[in-house]
């Protein structure tokens, strides 16, 4: 199995034939764009504003202000742009911030004002779901990044050296597999202050076993092939053999578990925030909106929409992962 461009092209051709997987890819790209552009889709600042004869681009300006490049003029620093007597203003399609509280409209049903309704504090659910994509995806990506680096390292060491090193590390895998992970995450998250960076770390630190076992098995398969043995005979140092000769070949099957791992991390994050663990109470996430439906069962929109967002994200990554698994399987080509 080689990773030359022609191999990648072959995999892509195979992947493309699986329509559901391609659909999953489009959905996950769409979600990524929503997450990146959340500020431009749902925001209580306008794109474009003419105020007292001056022109502003408040959303862009907000970034500049945050970076310290261009602070707000005095008149606009604390301004609520939706109440401003401006000559002209163009707002995003959803003119709310997810944290914007409006106690006049608690539990508003879905309407033209609030497409997906509001929660008990009158916060717009659509805005919460759009900005929640950012939290869920970033936790998914970073947690899997952490899991990937731990899993690759331990898997490579265990598979390359074998023997008692392998035996020892395999016991560690076994231990991690026999721990109910959600309990472990809850136990750790409970001792730390609620913070999404901790949550990323905890999920990453507890979800590397699958990747590590995949890597180990690939290494065990590859390490006795002729080209590795000849590299050893030539006196190439172990580190270089692992990094340059074995790892690239072992990577393909690991990609599948990375993609599936993103889905799993999103699922874990939303179940944690659903339980109210690991994220600050004032942060709006998919799970936290869903949590409000528990005590307010009449507000069906709080149950249906955020859950649908979680489902959409999870199934999109599952479909891509399954498609990749088939496309990478040499037996099916």
């Amino acid at each position: 199995m080689d990773t030359s461009p022609s191999y990648a092209r072959r995999v892509w051709r195979h992947f493309k034939r699986n329509h559901l997987a391609v659909l999953g890819l489009w959905v996950s790209i769409g979600l990524l764009l929503v997450a990146l552009g959340a500020d431009f889709l749902a925001n209580d600042k306008p794109y474009y504003l003419v105020y007292q004869g001056k022109t502003f681009f408040p959303i862009l300006h907000h970034y500049l202000d945050r970076l310290g490049i261009a602070p707000w003029p005095e008149a606009l620093r604390q301004a609520d742009f939706t109440q401003l007597k401006a000559e002209r203003a163009i707002f995003p399609p959803i003119p709310y911030r997810p944290s914007r509280i409006n106690l006049l409209v608690p539990f508003a049903e879905p309407s033209r004002e609030h497409w997906l309704g509001t929660d008990k504090l009158g916060r717009d659910v659509m805005a919460g779901i759009i900005h929640g994509a950012r939290i869920s995806l970033s936790i998914g990506f970073i947690a899997v990044g952490i899991a990937l680096s731990i899993g690759l390292t331990l898997g490579a060491i265990s598979g390359y050296f074998g023997g008692w090193v392998d035996l020892l590390i395999s016991r560690l895998f076994e231990m991690m597999l026999s721990i109910p992970t959600l309990f472990l995450i809850i136990a750790i998250a409970a001792t730390l202050a609620p913070n999404i960076f901790y949550t990323m770390g905890i999920i990453g630190l507890t979800s590397w076993v699958g990747i590590a076992r995949f890597t180990r098995n690939e290494f065990l398969k590859v390490r006795n092939l002729d080209y590795v043995i000849s590299a050893v005979a030539l006196g190439v140092p172990a580190k270089r053999i692992v990094m340059r000769h074995i790892l690239p070949n072992a990577l393909a099957p690991v990609i599948v578990s990375v993609v599936l791992g993103i889905a799993a991390a999103i699922l874990t994050e939303s179940s944690l925030s659903f339980l109210g663990i690991g994220v600050p109470a004032d942060l709006v996430t998919w799970g936290s909106i869903l949590n409000e439906a528990r005590s307010n069962t009449f507000a069906w929109w709080l149950a249906v929409f955020p859950g649908a967002a979680i489902f959409l994200a999870v199934i999109a990554y599952y479909l891509v992962g399954e498609g990749l698994r088939d496309a990478l399987d040499p037996r099916l080509q």
């Binding site: 799970g287 439906a293 069906w300 859950g307 649908a308 489902f311 999870v314 199934i315 599952y318």
Partner: peptide
């Protein structure tokens, strides 16, 4: 495949909202 991807806490909440008394 669909069932496998459905988060159980979502289905649980949907069941509570729609099937267990409440407004439905």
């Amino acid at each position: 495949f669909m069932l496998f991807a459905l988060p159980s806490f979502w289905i649980g909440i949907l069941a509570i909202v729609f099937l267990c008394g409440g407004d439905f």
